[in-house]
Design a protein around this nucleic acid. Structure first.
Length: 856
RNA sequence: GGGCGAUUGGCUCAGUUGGUUAGAGCGCCGCCUUCACACGGCGGAGGUCACAGGUUCGAGUCCUGUAUCGCCCACCA
C-alpha cells in the first residue's frame, strides 16, 4: 500500500462529473466481448420512452438494476448492460406533432427541403410520412442525448458504446425478420375481424393496451315489439344508438321468462328490422331485464355472441367514430329510412342524443334514462371510448385462442425466477385471461412497417392471401417506397402490380424483441452467443402483461426458451398522498434537481432503500440520510487513513498481524456482514444488502473507531497498534466494496485515495479471509465493548458531561461469559470511555455503574 | 366477481425458518463548541405490531375470519 493521499476537506461536490468522466475515459464499464457466456451477466435494460421526460420513478428503478449490475461485475462477471431508447410509436408521434406543429398526411409527397417553422403554427402543417419520420428521428436524437447525460450523472454503469434504439435500423431489421419467421411458421397471420378501435388515433389497439375507466352512462329501457304482434319484449341498454346495428336479442337458455320466445322474432324499434331471439349462456338473467340486445358491435360480448350464434354483421360505426352515411341494411319502410337519415354521419354522442328523442317520440322508450356509472374500455392513451370496427389486421399467436400454446407459455412463466416471487401471479392471471391473439398492426406512421406487399389483381384489388415478402438480406424494407421482389416501382398501385401493406407494427412488437435487439440476433452472431439468453429482465409491474409477456412469447416462438432466467420487478414511486407519481398527475419531481441538491449517491441511497417489488414513498428525508451517509464515508475514511498514515499495513487479512481481541472480533462481525450482504444480493435484494452494510458502518464509526483510536496511534513496532491499523484498513477496504454498488461516487473517491484502479472493478469481499484473520474469535467481544461504551456515554450524557470527562470508576455487572470477553478488551474500553478504574462483577445481565470525576 | 400485496411509535421503513423487556432513521426534546465529520456526536421521550379468534410452553412472525388501502385480472347489456 502506498501512503494514502487524503484531501484536507473532502466533500461530495463535483464527484459525479469527476468520476463519470474518468469511468468513461478508463472504460471501467466497457463490456469485454471476449468473455464467454458463463462469465457474462447480461441485462435486458428497459428502454425508457424518450418522448417523455425522465422522472424520479426512472431514477428509482434504474438504480435498483445498477446496484445489481455493479454487484455482479465485482463478483467477476462481465456485465452486458446496454441502454436502449424507446423512440418508437405513438408517444413520439404525439410529441413531434406538438413540438413542431405538424401532422402526417401519408398522401403528400416527400419534400426534401422541408424545415419546420421556428414556432409551431396554430394550424398544424401537413407533411409527408417521410418528412414526419425525419422530424421524429431528429427530436428523439436530442432527447436521447439529454437522457444519457442524466443517467451518467446518476452513475449507471452502462456501457455507453452499446446503446440501441427501437426505431433504429437494427431494431427494424430484427422486428421484420422476427415477423417474417413467424409468418413462415404460421404464428403470424392476418384476419378481417371485429377489432377494438380508437376513433381519435384511428388505429386498432391490442388487449394489452386497454384500460377500464369508470364513466357516466344511462340505462335506457326500450320496447321491442314481437313480430307476431303478441306484445313486447323490454330490454335495457346503455347504447341505444346501436339499435340500427341490432342483429338479435339474447337471453340465458335456462331463463324461463324467455324460453318460449327463443327463435321467435322481434322488430327493432324505429327501424322495424326483424331480428331473432336467441339463447346463450353468457346472457345474465340478473342484468337489466335479463335479455340483451346484440349489436355489431357494442362490446366484446357482442363479438362473442355474433360469432358463436352465427349472426349477420350490420356495422354502423366507421373508422372516424361516426355513423356510416348509408344504412346497415335495406330498410323496408320509408319511416325507417327517415330515422336513419336523422342519425347518419353523426358522432356516437350526437347519435345517442338524437335516437333517445326519436324513441321518446315513438313511444318505444318506456322510461326516462337512468344514470349509472360503469366501466368502459379505453385505449390507455386515448380520450374516447373504444369502438369495435371490422378491419383487416395482423395477429401473432399468443395462446389467446390456443390452449396448448397458452399452457406452454404458462410453463415458461413458472420456469422464470421472479423477484419478488409473487409477481408471477400477474403473469398467470393475464395469460389465463387472454381472449384472443395479439393484434400487432397499427394504422400509424412512425414505427416499423410490415415488410409486406400484396399483388393487385386485374381489377386492382389486393390479394391479401398472397402476401409478397422480401428476402431477409434485404431487411429492413419500407414497402411504401421500395418495390417487392419481382416488381418494379412503376407497378405500384396498378392492376396486375402491387400495393404495400399500409400498417406499422405495434410498439410492443418491437419492444418484445429487446433481448434480440440488444444481443444483436442475426446481426452479430458472436455477440449473440455470448449474451443470449440473458440473465436479468428488470421492469415495472404494470407492464408484465405487455412487455414481459410479449417478450416471452417471441423467445418461445423463435428459440423455444425463455429470454432470461430472472425477472426483477420494481415497484412504483408514490407521492406523499400515496398515489403513483406520474406526469399526468402533475406530481413528478425533476430528478436532475434532486441529484444536484443531495448528490447522486444520496438519491441512489433513497432508491436502493426501496425493496424489490415494493411501492415506495418519495421521501426527501431518506435522501438527506443518504447524503449524511455519503459524507460520513468520506470523513470516516479520511480519519482511518489518517491514523494509518505512513505505517505499513498489509493488504491481505491472512498476514496474522491482527492480534488484539477487539480487532479479531470486529473482523468476525464483518465476515458475517459480508455473508449477509452477499446472500441478499444473490437474491436481488439490494435493499437488504445496503441496510445491513449501513448499520455495520455506523457501528464501525461510532464504536469501533472510538475504541481503537488511542491504541492505533501507537508506534510502528507495537503489536496492538499494528493490529488496530490493519483492522481499520481491512474493515474500510471491505466496507467500501460493500457500499460500492449503492454509493458508486463516494466509494470510488475514497478508493482513489489509497488504492489502485477502480473500486468498481475490484473483487466483491469474501468472508473467509476475514474469518481467518479473526482466528476463531467471534463477534461477541465487539458487541460487549460497544454496549459498555454506550452505557458509559449514557452516564456522561445523563450528568450533562462532555464525552471527554474522566470516569473515576466504572462497575460492570454482567454474565460471566460476557465479562470474560470484556476483560480481554478492557484496555480499549477504558481508553475510549476515559475510564480510570474498571470493575467486573458477575451477574445476570448488563448493568453499568459509573462514577464521574468532578468537573472542577 | 377472482387474485396479489400492504396494515409495526407523528412520518418513512426494518424485523430471513415463531424464542427472552419490538428495532432504525427522520421529526421532536435535552446535552456535548470532541483534536475525521456541526453536512457532527451522545442520549431521551414515543408503539396494547389494523381487528377478532385459533395453534403453541411461547405469535409482529403460523392458521382462519373481518376491516381499510393499493394493485392485477375478469364475457361490466
Amino acid at each position: 500500500m502506498t501512503t494514502p493521499r487524503v484531501p484536507e476537506k473532502p466533500g461530495l461536490e463535483g464527484l459525479e462529473d469527476k468520476w463519470a468522466t474518468r469511468w468513461d475515459d478508463d472504460g471501467v464499464y466497457r463490456f469485454d466481448r471476449t468473455a464467454t457466456r458463463e462469465r457474462v451477466f447480461s441485462i435486458d435494460t428497459p428502454p425508457p420512452t424518450v418522448s417523455g421526460s425522465l422522472h424520479v420513478g426512472h431514477v428509482f428503478s434504474y438504480t435498483h438494476t445498477d446496484t445489481v449490475a455493479r454487484y455482479r461485475r465485482m463478483r467477476g462477471l462481465e456485465v452486458f448492460y446496454p441502454m436502449g431508447w424507446d423512440d418508437n410509436g405513438l408517444p413520439t408521434e404525439r410529441r413531434v406533432q406538438n413540438y413542431f406543429g405538424v401532422r402526417c398526411d401519408p398522401t403528400l409527397p416527400y419534400d426534401p427541403d422541408f424545415e419546420p417553422p421556428e414556432k409551431p403554427p396554430k394550424q398544424a402543417t401537413a407533411i409527408s410520412r417521410r418528412n414526419f419520420v425525419e422530424l421524429c428521428d431528429r427530436l428523439v436524437g436530442e432527447d436521447e442525448q439529454k437522457f444519457e447525460e442524466l443517467w451518467r450523472h446518476l452513475g449507471l454503469s452502462v456501457d455507453w458504446s452499446m446503446t440501441y434504439t427501437t426505431v433504429g435500423k437494427r431494431a427494424q431489421r430484427i422486428s421484420q425478420r422476427a415477423f417474417l419467421r413467424m409468418l413462415g411458421r404460421g404464428e403470424a397471420y392476418q384476419a378481417e375481424a371485429p377489432t377494438l378501435w380508437d376513433v381519435d388515433f384511428r388505429t386498432a389497439v391490442a388487449q394489452a393496451e386497454l384500460e377500464d375507466r369508470e364513466m357516466p352512462g344511462a340505462y335506457h329501457t326500450i320496447r321491442f315489439p314481437r313480430a307476431d304482434g303478441e306484445g313486447d319484449i323490454v330490454i335495457e341498454t346503455t347504447r341505444p344508438e346501436l339499435i340500427p346495428a341490432c342483429v338479435a336479442l339474447v337471453a340465458h337458455p335456462d331463463d324461463e321468462r324467455y324460453q318460449p320466445l327463443f327463435d321467435s322474432e322481434v322488430l327493432t324499434p324505429l327501424f322495424g328490422v326483424r331480428v331473432p331471439v336467441r339463447a346463450h349462456h353468457l346472457a345474465d338473467p340478473e342484468k337489466g331485464s335479463g335479455i340483451a340486445m346484440i349489436c355489431t358491435f357494442g362490446d366484446l360480448t357482442d363479438v362473442v355472441w355474433w360469432r358463436e350464434l352465427d349472426l349477420p354483421a350490420r356495422p354502423i360505426v366507421g373508422w372516424d367514430g361516426r355513423l356510416h352515411g348509408s344504412p346497415p341494411i335495406d330498410f323496408e319502410t320509408h319511416r325507417a329510412s327517415e330515422h336513419w337519415s336523422e342519425l347518419a354521419g353523426k358522432s356516437i354522442k350526437q347519435a345517442r342524443e338524437r335516437i333517445v328523442e326519436l324513441l321518446r317520440d315513438s313511444g318505444d322508450l318506456l322510461a326516462e334514462p337512468r344514470p349509472i356509472t360503469h366501466a368502459v374500455k379505453f385505449y390507455e392513451k386515448g380520450d374516447r371510448p373504444l369502438e369495435i370496427v371490422t378491419t383487416r389486421q395482423w395477429y401473432i399467436r399468443n395462446g389467446g385462442r390456443d390452449a396448448r400454446l397458452r399452457d406452454a407459455l404458462l410453463a415458461r412463466g413458472r420456469a422464470l425466477h421472479w423477484h419478488p416471487e409473487y409477481m408471477r401471479a400477474r403473469y398467470d392471471s393475464w395469460v389465463e385471461g387472454l381472449n384472443g391473439d395479439w393484434l400487432v398492426s397499427r394504422q400509424r406512421f412512425f414505427g416499423v412497417p410490415f415488410p409486406i406487399w400484396y399483388p393487385l389483381d386485374a381489377r386492382g384489388e389486393p390479394e391479401y392471401d398472397r402476401p409478397l415478402v422480401p428476402t431477409e438480406d434485404a431487411l429492413p424494407v419500407d414497402p411504401q417506397s421500395q418495390a417487392p421482389p419481382g416488381y418494379t416501382e412503376d407497378r405500384r398501385g396498378l392492376p396486375g402490380g402491387f400495393v404495400a401493406d399500409p400498417d406499422v407494427m405495434d410498439t410492443w412488437a418491437t419492444s418484445s424483441l429487446t433481448p434480440q435487439i440488444a444481443c444483436a440476433w442475426g446481426e452479430d452472431d458472436d455477440l449473440f452467443a455470448r449474451t443470449y439468453p440473458m440473465d436479468l429482465r428488470p421492469q415495472a409491474h404494470e407492464i408484465i402483461r405487455t412487455w414481459l409477456f410479449s417478450t416471452v412469447v417471441r423467445a418461445h416462438s423463435e428459440f423455444d426458451g425463455l429470454p432470461w432466467t430472472d425477472a426483477a420487478i420494481s415497484g412504483w414511486v408514490l407521492d406523499p398522498d400515496r398515489k403513483k407519481m406520474s406526469k399526468s398527475r402533475g406530481n413528478v419531481v425533476t430528478p436532475l434537481n434532486l441529484l444536484e441538491q443531495y448528490g447522486s449517491d444520496a438519491v441512489r441511497y433513497w432508491a436502493a432503500s426501496g425493496r424489490p417489488g415494493t411501492d415506495t414513498a418519495f421521501d426527501e428525508g431518506q435522501m438527506k440520510v443518504g447524503r449524511r451517509l455519503a459524507i460520513k464515508v468520506l470523513n470516516a475514511s479520511k480519519f482511518a487513513l489518517g491514523v494509518i498514515g505512513e505505517h505499513t499495513v498489509p493488504t491481505d487479512p491472512a498476514t496474522a498481524v491482527v492480534t488484539a481481541p477487539l480487532d479479531r472480533s470486529l473482523l468476525a462481525a464483518l465476515a458475517e456482514l459480508v455473508d449477509d450482504a452477499t446472500s441478499a444480493f444473490d437474491q436481488y435484494d439490494y435493499a437488504r444488502a445496503l441496510e445491513r452494510t449501513e448499520r455495520f458502518f455506523w457501528g464501525y464509526c461510532d464504536d469501533y473507531i472510538e475504541l481503537v483510536k488511542q491504541r492505533a496511534y501507537g508506534p510502528g513496532d507495537d503489536a496492538g497498534a499494528t493490529s488496530a491499523r490493519a483492522t481499520l484498513a481491512f474493515a474500510l477496504d471491505t466496507l467500501l466494496r460493500l457500499f460500492a454498488p449503492h454509493l458508486p461516487f463516494v466509494t470510488e473517491e475514497v478508493w482513489s485515495w489509497w488504492r489502485a484502479g477502480s473500486v468498481h472493478r475490484s473483487a466483491w469481499p469474501e468472508s473467509a479471509p476475514l474469518r481467518a484473520a479473526a482466528a476463531g474469535d467471534g463477534p461477541a467481544a465487539y458487541g460487549v465493548a460497544a454496549d459498555v461504551l454506550g452505557a458509559v456515554r449514557k452516564a456522561k450524557t445523563g450528568q450533562q458531561k462532555s464525552m471527554r470527562a474522566d470516569v473515576t470508576s466504572a462497575t460492570v455487572t454482567d454474565h460471566p461469559d460476557r465479562l470474560a470477553l470484556l476483560d480481554a478488551v478492557r484496555a480499549d474500553v477504558c481508553d475510549a470511555g476515559r475510564v480510570l478504574e474498571l470493575h467486573l462483577v458477575p451477574g445476570e445481565q448488563l448493568a453499568v455503574e459509573v462514577v464521574l470525576a468532578d468537573a472542577d
